[in-house]
């Protein structure tokens, strides 16, 4: 199949970017979207042009690096990562728009690559548990109910790709932050720092310049890990509770 790509090209963080059109011929339907971009880059290298910079790492849908907006939707709207999106999703002769995540807190580094270290700083603000080191505890020393374990696990599948921010009309990172909050709030290990955690992480989220949540739901609709929208209510519950409760009491 042949496709026409309109790709955001931006030389560096301060340069002005624009959409540039490229043709890619003889693409296999079984290729992943990234393999198709690799083909384009080979073609560009041969002709002496600068290849398109895009982020990627594991190429098996678990690292969250390869986020781009395809045809106006994060990861093409397929609720998967770009590496797991295959060319069979597109028609022969399709015109495909590819843009980076657009968020003030995710500045473009080059072309389709954005700086997502704002997420790291939100995690550093409280997305962890403090624990004394020593020998490994006995299995089942801290029992966890099945429902809580499932909910914690579902939330923990967040790979921090940033699709929620890219899709949100407010540029909010609430789904990401809430997934981390919910993951730890469901488990006994997360309890000692529960209320300080939610305060610090929300404060850092706002500090980074992400927008506020207005419960639109675009984030959950594009999340490659299907993190449900209700984790945001979990964060809100914990945040309200943190007004009245202190950790360890």
């Amino acid at each position: 199949m042949n496709v026409t790509l309109r790709i955001w090209r931006q030389a560096n963080a301060s340069a002005k970017g624009q959409m540039v059109t490229y043709q890619v011929q003889d693409v296999s339907k079984d290729m992943s979207f990234l393999e198709m971009l690799d083909m384009l880059n080979e073609q560009l290298s041969v002709s002496g042009e600068e290849p398109v910079a895009f982020d990627h790492d594991c190429r098996e849908g678990i690292c969250g690096m390869c986020g781009v907006v395809i045809n106006g939707l994060a990861h093409g709207g397929a609720q998967t990562t770009t590496c797991q999106l295959h060319m069979r999703h597109f028609e022969d002769g399709a015109v495909i728009d590819i843009e980076p995540w657009r968020a003030g807190s995710f500045p473009v580094i080059k072309d389709l690559v954005v700086d997502r270290t704002a997420f790291d700083r939100i995690i550093q603000a409280g997305g962890f548990i403090s624990s004394n080191t020593g020998s490994a505890p006995d299995a089942h020393a801290a029992p966890v109910g099945k429902l809580q374990a499932d909910r914690a696990f579902d939330a923990a599948t967040c790979i921090g790709c940033g699709a929620c921010v890219a899709a949100c009309p407010n540029g909010s990172a609430m789904l990401f932050t809430s997934a981390k909050i919910t993951h730890l709030a469901m488990l006994p290990q997360g309890q000692p720092e529960r209320y300080l955690r939610v305060k610090s992480m929300v404060a850092q989220h706002d500090e980074e310049g992400f927008g506020g949540c207005t419960n639109i739901g675009e984030c959950a609709a594009v999340c490659p890990k299907q993190i449900p929208l209700d984790v945001i209510s979990q964060l809100n519950r914990d945040l309200i509770a943190s007004l009245f409760k202190k950790d360890g009491k």
Partner: peptide, 13 residues
């Protein structure tokens, strides 16, 4: 806050 968070608009959204 929302406008500041999306300072650059999408070309296609």
């Amino acid at each position: 806050r929302a406008h500041a968070a999306r300072s650059t608009k999408y070309v296609a959204k």
